[in-house]
């Protein structure tokens, strides 16, 4: 089980701030995870329609989409940041 946390419009479209998920074995990288989540329903599909713009953090550190997710405790999924 891995904890997924969502922010901003990704959170709004998926309609929950976080969830625990059993990830199937074929999901190896962060990019694989986005593709898998996209199949879980309309909200996920809307949130992850353009996966290239989505940012991923593993255990609260930014990663590229080719990063393996094995061993991750927490995976953050969110749009490009707009702070400052």
């Amino acid at each position: 089980m891995v904890k997924l946390v969502y922010f901003a419009w990704v959170r709004e479209r998926i309609d929950k701030p976080e969830e625990e998920l059993d990830v199937p074995a074929h999901v190896v990288t962060a990019g694989d995870l986005l593709a898998y989540l996209k199949t879980l329903g309309d909200g996920y599909a809307a949130a992850l329609e353009y996966p290239d713009v989505i940012r991923v953090a593993i255990n609260q550190e930014h990663v590229e989409h080719d990063e393996p997710i094995a061993g991750a405790r927490e995976i953050g999924i969110f749009p490009p940041m707009t702070g400052g």
Binding site: M81, T82, G83, G84
Partner: peptide
């Protein structure tokens, strides 16, 4: 760097 990589979002 804060603007592009600190995880904040404005609505």
């Amino acid at each position: 760097f804060l603007k592009t990589s600190a995880p904040f979002w404005k609505k």
